[in-house]
């Protein structure tokens, strides 16, 4: 089946838009569900997150704190990472 070239361009455009939108989506991982108050505090701290799709994910493994992901960038504020960091530093000292 042949697709009309014009249609093809349109289709490509919409698909690209979809992908870009998804890339802009923000995922926030936390060990316990965040309260509304906490979420508003977060938005205050990071104003660029406003008007964006935010997805909340529960992840017990990170122990405490949150991890914010957007596309390929990450802000890691979890306790697990800090523990790992300490583990590494201790190894270097001894």
């Amino acid at each position: 089946m042949k697709i009309d070239p014009e249609l093809k361009i349109e289709l490509k455009k919409t698909l690209m838009n979809e992908i870009n939108k998804k890339r802009d989506d923000i995922i926030i991982e936390s060990s316990i569900p965040l309260s509304n108050e906490q979420i508003s505090m977060l938005l205050e701290k990071y104003p660029k997150f406003k008007n964006k799709n935010i997805k909340f994910v529960l992840n017990r493994k990170i122990i405490a704190g949150i991890i914010i992901k957007q596309g390929s960038t990450i802000i890691d504020l979890s306790l697990l990472t800090q523990f790992n960091q300490i583990k590494k530093n201790l190894y270097e000292i001894t």
Partner: peptide, 18 residues
């Protein structure tokens, strides 16, 4: 040394490429 190391560590809030 460990004490010194821990007290000097700050939580890294910068966003990173992953």
């Amino acid at each position: 040394q460990i004490e010194k190391e821990l007290s000097s560590k700050k939580v890294d809030t910068a966003s990173k490429e992953t």
